[in-house]
Design a protein around this nucleic acid. Structure first.
Lengths: 341, 341
DNA sequence: GCTATAAATGAAAGCGCTTTCATTCAATCA
DNA sequence: TGATTGAATGAAAGCGCTTTCATTTATAGC
């Protein structure tokens, strides 16, 4: 592999001039530039990024920590991030934390050892203090889907409360009044906020939320199935179920199929996230769109602007969910039997 | 951040000795080692991987090129690869080629510029010659899901032909005789091999494959929908459809729902890949399991062994598919109407 | 033509680490 | 005790590039 010394020899200039041409860091006479570029082409020169990084104390890479590298939610996020950085020649290194506190911290340390220029973190367990210190002593940090007061300009979040509101509001508009809710784990702020928004919509319609129509699930498909069974056992009628995410909604749908419950004629169902499989369940799921692609792009833009001084579209921190109406919901009136055991 | 000079000062040894302790490259007296390790702990020393890479001419990172970073198939692959390398402290850099020849080559060049120690490639467009040369002049390459004769020890493949055989064979066992086939693009060897296996099973049962029951799709959901509509228009009865992948099978299922065709009572459907959404469609899809997770692991193991001289479980190059029976297939007998317009 | 200033380029040091050859230390044997 | 050999460590060069200060070249104004 050709080195910068060989390019400088062939072009008849110094190393510094070759470097200036490569990095566009200073004025170079046009004729000189062309000589250098010609030499680089002839030698098939590719800069050694390790040497560049060491000499410039910048790695031109960004680290990303997420719970898993697969799945519809994270896959979309990773894809958008890679796309944004690739477009400007920066590499991305991903690490999976598997929703485990120890592994979360290890993942961050692992990426730090790579001297990444910045970190994009979708993490839950590490403390606010840890994140603030990390940002101060190591590298800039951008946080997805979490509010860290000390880093408030560096957090990108979704208005989960509004999402919860939109789902319940839509069902109320369809005429439903007895709406069951299968929540995500309530230690997670997004799960809590979604339920709060749900209650907002109920109260706005003059309905006091009924604790008997609430089940705390685990954001997994099995949690949806178990939640549905548990709600049925309470012998309280409900004509609709809102789930805190699409995966639990899929669990409800599967169980409803098993019980030959007609969806949406006998039971309307709404999920949250609009992950790609929500389109594959039958009937197609009405859900709340979580603009994870846009949020991933925004995280990348923040870094491009603040770390690499590149121009980007305007930055946005708070994202709004949208209702996506598909086939799993329908009008409710008293002539249809409500779902009960 | 502490440097190796500071560690050597504090421990009272030379740089070379600190390096020897870090890398375990030579005998170091136990007492000396302990002094060095204590100094590293006190200083919170983390090696600068850029300097390590430059000095050792090894980046301790691996590049991976796949079509997309998201989706059930690639997501699983990426996850397994990251896991295997993370366990031994190596970083992985992914690049998405979007099934475009120019971007495929750019992606590889992009990763080369990172001086990755090896490349894992799931690519279709770049030529065998390019790959062989790449392996020779740049870095070791391992190929997934493609046979490159010049790199035969470095190709990890699935027996697609057997998978196609298993699907058709199962339907034949269920009593089906008129089986439609919606294929992937026939320029892709996996799509071709799957259909060859399909034909093997038919011929084994004394049935000559009927070109009228064949449609070349695009491996996308829309291809499945259009394939199904096209086959219906031929006014040839068929009681089952085999699709070259799950995504096209999902398109067939969606169209069948729209036409109120009872699945599997009126039409049995089989997909291929066993991607995670095959579990979410209704009825749950019978499909052929593609062990992408195991194959990703094997790619990583090959590199760990050949590039990093680490011990791994035994290497395997050819993987076998498995039939996964779910709910989209049922027995066929002449008392049920075949599917036709 | 000379002087001053700006533009352009070169020389050298250094980024943090690895590796190789030289040197020192320790152990064994005669 | 001295010589030999093996173990352990140190000194120095260098990986490929960036950056800063010194030097050279070019331009403009008088």
């Amino acid at each position: 592999m050709a080195t910068i010394y060989e390019v400088s020899k062939l072009a008849g200039v110094s190393l510094a001039t070759v470097s200036r041409v490569i990095n566009n860091t200073a004025t170079v006479r046009e004729a000189t530039r062309e000589r250098v570029e010609k030499a680089m082409r002839e030698l098939g020169y590719q800069p050694n990024t390790m040497a560049q990084s060491l000499a410039s104390n910048r790695s031109n890479s960004v680290g990303v920590v997420v719970s898993e590298l697969n799945g519809p939610f994270y896959g979309t996020l990773l894809s958008e991030i890679e796309k944004a950085f690739r477009a400007v020649g920066k590499h991305v290194v991903f690490a999976a934390s598997h929703s485990d506190q120890a592994i979360e911290q290890q993942s961050i340390e692992f990426l730090k050892s790579r001297r990444v220029d910045a970190l994009i973190l979708h993490v839950e367990s590490v403390s606010d203090e840890y994140l603030a210190k990390l940002n101060q002593t190591d590298c800039p940090v951008i946080i997805l889907n979490r509010d860290v007061p000390a880093l408030e300009k560096q957090c990108i979040t979704l208005n989960n409360r509004l999402g919860g509101y939109l789902a319940a509001h839509y069902l109320l508009q369809l005429g439903h009044r007895d709406i069951a809710y299968i929540a995500g784990p309530q230690w997670k702020s997004d799960a809590r906020d979604r339920y709060l928004g749900h209650c907002d919509a109920l109260r706005e319609a003059g309905i006091e939320p009924n604790p008997e129509l609430f089940y705390e699930g685990d954001f997994q498909e099995t949690g949806g199935t178990q939640g549905f069974l548990a709600l049925q056992q309470k012998a309280i009628a409900f004509s609709a179920v809102v789930c805190g995410n699409d995966e639990m909604a899929a669990g409800v749908i599967a169980e409803a199929h098993d019980q030959d419950i007609d969806i949406p004629e006998k039971l309307s169902i709404i999920g949250f996230d609009n992950v790609n499989f929500s389109h594959y369940v039958y009937p197609k799921l009405t859900t709340i769109d979580y603009p994870i692609a846009s949020m991933g792009q925004m995280a990348a833009h923040w870094i491009l602007q603040h770390v690499y001084q590149q121009k980007t579209p305007p930055l946005q921190q708070l994202f709004e969910p949208k209702l996506v109406i598909r086939d799993s919901t329908t009008h409710y009136d008293d002539n249809c039997a409500k779902n009960s055991p």
